[in-house]
Design a protein around this nucleic acid. Structure first.
Lengths: 339, 339
DNA sequence: TTGTATGCGTTATCAA
DNA sequence: TTGATAACGCATACAA
C-alpha cells in the first residue's frame, strides 16, 4: 500500500508555484483567482490527488455543512424510507448527511449524538423523545438545533416532526372495538426507552377504557420487531382466557409475523382471528390477507424534518412542531369477530 | 437559541485550574493523571458540557477511528441488513461508522467517497465494482483501504467480500431450464453503472446458451427496484411471442412485484407462470406462494467486510478477497411449465 | 490578483 | 504528575 502521508495545501502550492492562500482561494472562491493561476492549481490538485482535510477546514472556517441523524436501526424499512427522503432533501441543499445507528440502546445513542456533534454536525435528527435530560441540555448548550421525528407532542419545548402515535392507534383500536371485538390481544414493541412503542400501547388502552373493556379482556406481549418473535407472541396470546378475537400489533412487521403464524396454525385471517398493523410498509399489502393498518407518511416526514432542520440552522430559531396525519388503511385482515 | 461558541479545552482548563495538556490527558489517558486532578477536570467537563472537537483532534492526532461506507440506497432491505451487521462489527471494535448513500448515481458516489476521506475515514466500504479508475487511484494514492462488497471477481486487484452474482443466478437459471422451460423472461435491475445487475443478466444468458435456447425465446426488461415497475414489466413480458413460462427476476423486490401482478391478472403462480427471486429477503417467504430464490448471506457479508477493513487498516496490507456462497432456496414459485 | 501571517482546538514532546 | 509549546492543515484579514 502506498505512502500514507496525504498531500496538503502546501504541497499543492509548491507544485503550482503559488502560495497556500491562492490554492485555498482556488478551491473556495475560484472567481477571485486569475484564470491561468486557477488552471495551474487545478492541475496540481489533480496530479497530487489532493482533497482538503475536513477537520482542518472545519477548524479554520467554523462551519461544516453537515447534518447528522441517529436512528435506532438501519435494518428496518420504516426508518430507511424516511431517512432516504431526509437525505435527498439534505443533499439537494448542498449539505452532507452523517448517519449513525444506536441499536435501540440509549447509551449508545447518546454516544453517537456526541460523536456527531464533535464531528461538526450543525443540526441533528433524532427519533422519538426518550432520552436523558442531559443530552438535551448538551445540545441546547451547544446551540445545535435538533428535530424529533416519528412522534409528536403538542405541549413540548422540543421541535417534533411526526405524528401522534397514541391517537393514531387509538383510532384503529376504536375501529376494532366498533366491529364488536371484546377480547383483545396486543403484540407491542419493547416499550422501555421507546416512547413510540409506549404511546401505542397507551392508545390502545385508552380506546379500551372508552368502550369499558375490562382489564382481563386485554393482554399485551412486548417483543422486539421481528417476524419470528411476533409469531411466538401470537401463540402465547391465543392461550389466554378469554381468548382474544383480535390482535393489534405495534407495527407491520409484528403483524405480518402474526398473520404468518396464524395461518401456520390453521387459522383463517380475519375469519378466525383479526390482526392489524401499523406503518403501512410495503409488505403489508403483499401478505395474504393484506393488512388493515395505519398509514404513516414516512417519506414526507423525512423531507419535512430535513427542511425544519435546514431552516433552524439558518435562522437560529426553534421551528414549531409539525404534526403529520396518519390514516387507517382498510385492507382485509380485520373483520367482525367470528365472521 | 443559546450562544453558539462551544467550550474548548482551554475553557475546561481554566475552570479546573489546570493546563490544557492536563485536560487532554484526563480525557485520553486518565491513568497518567492524579485522582484529585482528574476529578476536578471531569467536574469542569460536566459543568461546561464540553466535548472535544473532532476535527482538531484528528488534525493533531492523525487518526480518526472512523470507517466509512457508501451504499446505493438506504431504502432497501438488502443493504440495510448487511450494513447493520457491518456497523455492529465496527462498533464492537471501537470505531465509528459513517454512512453515505449515492442514490445509484456514480458521480454522487464519488463525491461521497471524497467526502468521507476528507472527514478522515481511514477505511471504506463500497458496493460493487463499477466506478471510475480515478476514484480507485485516489484511494490508492491516499493509502486508504477499501473493500468491494456484494460482488466477487477472482482475478482482480481489488479486495472483494461478496459473491459471484453471475454464477449464482446461472445456477438458478439452470434449474429453471432443467424443469423444461424454454421461453424465459427476465425482469432485471438497471444494468448501467451496476455490475451486480449486469452480472445477473449475464449469468442467465450463459445458462440459456448452455441449453441452446434461441435468442427470440428470451426477453429482458430492465427497471429500477420497485414493486410497481416490476408489475408493469411482467405485463410487457407476457405480451411477448412466444410467451415466457418462467420469469427470472434480478432480485426479490422485483419478483414480489411480479408475483403480485401475476395474481392480479388472474394467473396462478407457479402453475401458469413461474417466477424466481434473488437475495432471499424476508418478504420472499411471506408472499404467497413463497419465492424460490437465491439466498445471499447479507449479514455475514457485512460482518466479514468489516473484519477485512479493520485488518487492512491495522496491517496496511491488501487483504485477499473472500467469496461467499449463495445457495438456492426452493419454496414454491417455480415449477415445471404448465403444471 | 496574490502573498504573509495568524488562529482554529487538539495532541504530543519535552522539561520541570 | 503537570505545564509550556510546537505542530496539525486550512481559511482569512490584511498587505502588497
Amino acid at each position: 500500500m502506498p505512502n500514507h502521508s496525504l498531500p496538503t495545501l502546501e504541497d499543492v502550492a509548491r507544485e503550482a508555484q503559488v502560495s497556500t492562500a491562492t490554492v485555498s482561494r482556488s478551491l473556495n472562491s475560484p472567481d477571485n483567482v486569475a484564470a491561468k493561476t486557477l488552471e495551474r492549481v487545478q492541475a496540481a490538485v489533480q496530479k497530487l490527488g489532493y482533497s482538503p482535510n475536513f477537520g482542518a477546514r472545519a477548524l479554520a472556517a467554523k462551519r461544516t455543512n453537515t447534518i447528522g441523524a441517529v436512528i435506532p436501526t438501519m435494518e428496518n424499512a420504516i426508518f430507511a424510507r424516511g431517512l432516504q427522503a431526509f437525505q435527498e432533501t439534505i443533499s439537494r441543499n448542498g449539505s452532507t448527511l452523517l448517519v449513525a445507528s444506536s441499536s435501540y440502546l440509549r447509551e449508545l445513542e447518546e454516544e453517537q449524538i456526541r460523536n456527531l456533534v464533535a464531528r461538526g454536525a450543525d443540526a441533528i435528527l433524532l427519533i422519538g423523545e426518550d432520552r436523558s435530560e442531559e443530552i438535551y441540555e448538551f445540545l441546547k448548550k451547544r446551540g445545535i438545533p435538533y428535530v424529533l421525528a416519528w412522534n409528536y407532542r403538542p405541549n413540548s419545548s422540543h421541535c417534533f416532526v411526526g405524528f401522534d402515535n397514541r391517537a393514531a392507534i387509538k383510532n384503529l383500536a376504536r375501529k376494532v372495538l366498533d366491529l364488536g371485538h371484546v377480547t383483545i390481544g396486543m403484540i407491542a414493541g419493547l416499550t422501555q426507552e421507546n416512547d413510540r412503542a409506549r404511546d401505542r400501547v397507551l392508545g390502545v388502552r385508552e380506546a379500551l377504557a372508552e368502550y369499558n373493556i375490562p382489564g382481563e379482556n386485554f393482554h399485551v406481549i412486548e417483543t422486539s420487531y421481528d417476524f419470528t418473535n411476533a409469531g411466538d407472541a401470537l401463540e402465547l396470546l391465543l392461550e389466554k382466557k378469554p381468548k382474544p378475537t383480535a390482535i393489534i400489533c405495534g407495527n407491520d412487521i409484528l403483524a405480518v409475523g402474526a398473520v404468518k403464524q396464524a395461518k401456520a396454525l390453521g387459522l383463517r385471517v380475519p375469519e378466525d382471528i383479526s390482526i392489524t398493523g401499523f406503518d403501512d410498509i410495503e409488505v403489508s399489502s403483499i401478505i395474504e390477507p393484506p393488512l388493515t393498518t395505519v398509514h404513516i407518511p414516512h417519506r414526507k416526514m423525512g423531507k419535512i424534518a430535513a427542511e425544519c432542520l435546514l431552516a433552524m440552522r439558518k435562522n437560529q430559531v426553534l421551528s414549531k412542531s409539525i404534526k403529520l396525519n396518519p390514516f387507517i388503511v382498510e385492507r382485509g385482515s380485520l373483520s367482525k369477530p367470528g365472521e
